[in-house]
């Protein structure tokens, strides 16, 4: 699957005069809405969507500033705005009830949606929520120095230019971090890089990093949203994730915030690409579907 193929599969929906790229597949009655992670795009899910589409109608969009969606200069990519965009999109597609699956950056958006749902502000029915690698306990989050610099509003814009990573460097980094051979196939990384690099994506990357500040500011709102949730929320964690470390998950489990905590073994932040089989099985187990996957 190349990026171009991926683009042809989806469509563009205009929301607030901005174009949002959406993949809308499958004709089953239940809808699975996916909120992707940072700083990638809906393309993360290309390996699992064909399988999931057998059981669900899949709706996955690129957040503004990511993937093929518009990257307007005038938007600072607040997570709150991203939640608004997602809700408006689902409205426009006529969804009445959804199951939400979110990853990393997307989990913050999902939690904002959950908070509003708890406060009777969303007409859409939400059946279940799956959160993967969510960084809720920031004091346990390992921020690398470069992340800290990017987070800074004043310095961020310069730092993001200085660290023009380039495709080769990213490829080397992926190889070093991932033992899995599948990830080393060139096209995966190249496509991701091209997507980020298109429409001056690199210029905007530091604005996107602003979401870490929002996670601090809305920590109570979002943690309370999980505590007060009236719908099942399930949290998945990757044990060897270098970004969202497992200690966060342990603290969460002891706090009784999550109702279920399931480990995905021996994978890193991008298990959807590295080990789609075990990942999809995990989600499916919870849907009580006994069919073998792949």
């Amino acid at each position: 699957m190349t990026a171009e193929n991926w683009k042809n599969k989806g469509k563009f929906v205009t929301i607030e005069n901005k174009k949002v790229f959406v993949i809308d597949e499958g004709d089953k009655p239940g809808t699975l809405a996916i909120l992707h992670g940072y700083p990638t795009s809906s393309y993360d899910y290309h390996r699992i969507i064909p399988e999931l589409a057998k059981y669900f109608r899949i709706v996955v969009h690129d957040h503004l500033g990511f993937g093929f969606s518009d990257k307007p200069d005038s938007l600072t990519y607040s997570l709150i705005d991203q939640a608004d965009i997602a809700l408006q999109l689902w409205n426009k597609l006529g969804l009445k009830s959804v199951t939400i699956l979110a990853h990393d950056y997307g989990t913050s958006i999902a939690k904002e949606i959950l908070a509003r749902k708890n406060h009777n502000l969303i007409p859409i029915r939400i059946n279940k929520m799956y959160l993967c690698s969510s960084s809720m306990r920031l004091e346990h989050l390992h921020l690398r120095n470069i992340d800290k610099l990017l987070k800074d509003r004043k310095l961020g814009r310069y730092i993001s230019r200085l660290t023009s990573y380039g495709y080769r460097k990213i490829k080397r980094k992926f190889k070093k971090d991932n033992i899995n051979y599948q990830i080393q196939k060139d096209y995966d990384i190249k496509d991701m890089w091209n997507q980020l690099n298109s429409t001056e994506g690199q210029k905007e990357v530091h604005f996107l990093s602003n979401f870490i500040n929002e996670r601090y500011t809305y920590w109570h709102r979002w943690t309370n949203a999980l505590k007060e949730a009236k719908i099942p929320v399930k949290i998945f964690w990757e044990k060897t994730d270098p970004v969202a470390i497992k200690e966060i998950a342990i603290v969460l489990a002891t706090e009784d915030v999550s109702k279920y905590l399931v480990w995905i073994e021996n994978v890193k932040h991008y298990s959807i690409i590295e080990t789609p089989n075990s990942w999809i099985k995990l989600v499916f187990d919870y849907q009580n579907i006994d069919k073998p996957v792949f």
Partner: peptide
């Protein structure tokens, strides 16, 4: 201070 931080974070949203 938290309120100021929040105003800064959401400023663009409100400005739009």
């Amino acid at each position: 201070p938290s309120y100021i931080t929040e105003s800064k974070l959401l400023w663009r949203r409100w400005f739009n």
